[in-house]
Nucleic acid binder design. Structure first.
Lengths: 194, 194
DNA sequence: TATCATTTGGAATAATCGTTCCAAAGTTAC
DNA sequence: GTAACTTTGGAACGATTATTCCAAATGATA
């Protein structure tokens, strides 16, 4: 009977995610990954195939984690407006508590690799479309319930909200200041009111 | 009397900018730069010091170009609201006409290198603050002239506008569709109206 | 304990990397 | 044409890179 793996794959992905996020894909060497994960090269290659395979797995893992966290928060309320607000609150908190200022792995990967890595480009597009779709659903509910303005079509407003979320990822990288990000978001969310 | 340089530095910076923008800093090799610029290694090192020096110079050159283009457009009108609109129009047009989908070099560099390159982080922060300051000035003018709503403090609204511009840089990377970006911007600019 | 089949550790490999090196080439002045 | 001084071309260099390789180690089972 063969030896079984002695490491926790989820833990390894988390460690890889952190170093990839900090140094970028091309700026992260296999040595960096060996050190960060505590695994030998053989273990990394046997489990993930190659550097790129590990990267994609870590990126998917990262986004799943983000999605789950946001899902948990928005489920605490039935109000569409509050669901949307909870997403922005989550995002601001994520930015402000990111001590190493690593930013969002999906945005980083997309900005670094969109031209040269189709897998990453596709993941980023899918993530965007899913989030926009979720916002659209909530906005439609909110508009039907009368708590969100009908001034703009739901899809358009949803896209603007997502745009603002991504903007936070960029500007928050430069200046992860809670009050500033809160103020920016207040203005954004005022769009739901008119 | 010594031989004079046989290349146009501005042209070289432009070429370097393009390849850096497409492949990222760490994904671009000196071979790539030699090929893209048509220069020998000696010429590159003699003129720019090293890869990093060339990168920073190209990045500064890129941002100067962006600033000049936006400056030219906004100068065509006295209306603060129209100045702001012209910046968004410029940005959308820049995104949509970017055939290779390289994106914004400053955003790309910042997302790739913010944690590991203080020069880049500083340049990105400076660029952001300058743009926000410019928006603040225009918004104040517009509020004084009665063409822009006084609902939000000028600085806060300026930051939200900049946030939206950066959002366009990210979302436009995934989906450089003119109509979509226009719609997103319409919602954003409605903030100036109330 | 023995067996089995995988995991592990880490050296080896070929290629690539950023930078240095230096002779040849080129421009200008005399 | 010669002298002076920089630019240019591209090979050389030491370090780093992602991946392969393979023997030792090890966990699971009988």
């Amino acid at each position: 009977m063969p030896k079984t793996k002695q490491f926790d794959e989820a833990e390894v992905l988390k460690k890889a995610e952190e170093v990839f996020n900090e140094k970028g894909y091309n700026g992260t060497s296999m040595d960096d990954l060996v050190r960060a994960t505590g695994l030998s090269r053989s273990s990394i290659y046997d489990t993930f195939g190659d550097k790129h395979g590990l990267f994609l797995k870590a990126l998917g893992n990262y986004q799943d984690g983000q999605n789950r966290a946001m899902q948990t928060l928005q489920a605490k309320t039935d109000s569409a407006k509050k669901k949307i607000r909870s997403i922005f609150d989550y995002m601001i908190n994520d930015i402000v508590t990111d001590k190493a200022r690593k930013g969002c792995m999906m945005v980083n990967a997309n900005m670094e690799l969109n031209c040269v890595d189709k897998d990453v480009a596709q993941m980023a597009l899918t993530t965007m479309e899913e989030m926009e779709q979720q916002f659209t659903i909530w906005i439609k509910e909110g508009q039907a319930a009368g708590e969100i303005s009908k001034k703009f079509p739901a899809k358009t407003l949803a896209r603007n909200l997502y745009n603002n979320l991504m903007g936070l990822r960029v500007t928050g990288r430069n200046r992860p200041d809670y009050d500033t990000l809160r103020d920016i978001t207040k203005v954004t969310l005022s769009l739901l009111d008119q």
